[in-house]
Design a protein around this nucleic acid. Structure first.
Length: 422
RNA sequence: GGAGGGAUGUCAGAGCGGACGAAUGAGAUAGUCUUGAAAACUAUUGUGGGGCAACUCACCGGGGGUUCGAAUCCCUCUCCCUCCGCCA
């Protein structure tokens, strides 16, 4: 959510953000509602002030007759006043729902563009291997080594369903443990977060109302979150923190659910785009300070890079263009890992900051040392997501004989150093 | 699933139709005392909206209602606790 005062004073900046983010939003209509709302509120308040004064008189009235007179006057006043309450509530409701749709303003460093095609590569890491044998894609590797059962996955869980088996499952657990060790060492508090969450949590983080098609809703009005960010951000909703506690760094771990309704027909093979997966997420609350947000954004991006480097996966970091930013995001880097069979980089991480967009919705504030109350800033980035990361891992580490080597960083978590056919 | 009890400021906790934006305690901030600290004492200390300001309006879990007037009464939703049942 954006501060209405800021919108009033800078409507052109919001309009510009709409254009850059390719979002249709009628700023002028919002401001009209805002004016109307304030006008109604003023007249209601004036009426309330009169009533409050009259009530004081009723209390001060010495004898019952005086009292009765004032009460009669009061009733008369009530009858003659036109009740603006209902109109106000209507205007307020529309205003509130529109406020949830005002986009945050992209940082100046964000390139203007329409889609991911306009994203800009900022750096690359790792050697892209030159295979001297015909390579397999991850689906073939998984089938040959009996690591994923897609047929039964579909039978039991429908389209995009899968069973992860044997070494693949152990590998995932090793990857979680490996990533957890790195993040805990960096001061993150590990938390197993609920994936089943309420509407406030979804709205507060900005997944509702704008992305409601991509979210599973349960029969009793709960939601399956697409990321533990939803629960971890909501963890401190309606709280006032202390400045000394900041930054708060959580490593949220949870299953994640996505309908993928916007991506019918895309990546239908394998485990790239699935409805259900596991993810370790970095979630940060920090001071209301742009420089602090920028600094931590680079840190959490570097954390993810460190995790990928340990796994020996070539990647690049791209700066997302304005059209590829979510409603609340100020700036976002995607980290994409090299997928040999596709000869391109595919997204495995997404690192973004929001300033106080989410924390206004969730009402997460802190008291500064000077005693001021401010909204915190929030940021998040993937730590590691499985099984998606198995795609670059299996493909980049495949060997001519059909086996797959395990990167050394994972050896201590596994009873094997390679996966080969039985 | 059944039966009761509860939700109040940063925290604990009173209030149960008008003098309550809310007792009291803790915490925090400032000051006195002290070489310094602790203790003690004194003062200040909720949030949000409108107005340059004086001021004013709203907020006692959320939403409705009754009343001239609601933290207090009624309805409803959410959550928490206790007991019984059920499951592990």
């Amino acid at each position: 959510m954006i501060d209405i005062k800021f919108i009033r004073e800078n409507p052109e900046k919001i309009k510009e953000a709409c254009t850059k983010k390719k979002i249709r939003f009628d700023v002028d209509h919002l401001l009209e509602l805002d004016a109307k709302r304030r006008e109604l509120l003023k007249s209601i308040e004036e009426f309330n002030a009169i009533k409050n004064q009259a009530n004081k008189k009723i209390q001060e009235a010495k004898n019952p007759e005086d009292r009765a007179v004032v009460i009669a006057q009061m009733k008369e006043l009530d009858r003659n006043s036109d009740d603006k309450g209902e109109e106000f509530r209507k205007v307020e409701a529309e205003f509130d729902s529109l406020m949830l749709l005002v986009p945050n303003i992209p940082d100046e460093s964000v390139p203007v563009g329409d889609s991911d095609a306009d994203n800009v590569e900022v750096r690359k890491w790792g050697e892209i291997r030159n295979f001297d044998f015909p390579i397999k894609d991850h689906v073939q590797i998984a089938k040959d080594l009996d690591l994923v059962d897609f047929e039964r996955g579909t039978k039991v869980a429908g389209f995009r369903g899968y069973f992860l088996k044997r070494e693949a499952m152990l590998l995932c657990m090793a990857i979680w443990q490996y990533a957890t060790d790195i993040l805990v060492r960096k001061g993150f508090t590990p938390v197993q977060a609920p994936a089943l969450v309420n509407k406030e949590a979804m709205t507060g983080t900005g997944y509702l109302p704008q992305s409601k098609d991509e979210v599973y809703e349960t029969h009793d009005g709960m939601y399956l979150a697409g990321t533990s960010e939803v629960a971890m951000m909501s963890y401190h909703s309606n709280e006032i923190l202390k400045e000394e506690e900041l930054p708060i760094k959580y490593m949220g771990f949870s299953p994640c659910y996505r309908t993928e309704i916007g991506s019918y027909g895309k990546d239908t093979q394998g485990i790239l785009r699935v409805h259900e997966f596991m993810k370790i997420e970095q979630v940060i609350l920090c001071k209301n300070d742009k420089e602090e947000s920028v600094k931590i954004h680079e840190e959490i991006t570097a954390n993810a890079e460190e995790i990928l480097q340990g796994l020996g996966l070539p990647y690049h970091v791209v700066l997302n263009c304005s059209g590829d930013l979510g409603l609340g995001q100020v700036k976002k880097y995607d980290i994409e890992c090299w997928v040999p069979s596709q000869e391109k980089y595919r997204e495995t991480h997404s690192s973004s900051y929001f300033f106080d967009f989410q924390t206004r919705r969730l009402n997460i504030r802190y008291k500064t040392k000077e005693g001021e109350t401010k909204f915190t800033h929030s940021l998040n980035n993937t730590g590691i997501a499985t099984p998606r990361v198995l795609i670059p891992l299996l493909e980049n580490w495949q060997q001519a004989d059909g086996s797959v080597k395990i990167p050394e960083a994972l050896h201590k978590y596994l009873p094997f150093k390679e996966i080969r056919r039985k």
